[in-house]
């Protein structure tokens, strides 16, 4: 599963790492680039079982919603 994510606070990566590990998934690749607007584009390729990736996806959305709210 490859996700293109917008990070408002780059420190959120740490939470993504923790969540990925808790759900028994891992990374194949991580790429993060600073944008001009104080945000970050992240492209992360995750590996794991179908079920775990589905859960990860849902919880990442929640995490990123909170990240966005916190940065407004």
């Amino acid at each position: 599963m490859t996700l293109a994510l917008v990070l408002h606070d780059w420190r959120i990566l740490e939470r993504i790492v923790g969540l990925t590990h808790r759900l028994g998934c891992s990374y194949r690749s991580v790429e993060v680039r600073a944008r001009d607007d104080n945000r970050y584009d992240a492209r992360i390729e995750f590996a794991g079982s179908h079920d775990a990736l589905r859960r990860l996806d849902a919880q990442l959305n929640r995490l990123l919603d909170d990240d966005k709210e916190m940065c407004q």
């Binding site: 589905r54 859960r55 849902a58 919880q59 959305n61 929640r62």
Partner: peptide, 8 residues
């Protein structure tokens, strides 16, 4: 209210 609960 939390979509991540669906199917968790």
């Amino acid at each position: 209210v939390d979509a991540s609960e669906f199917g968790k």
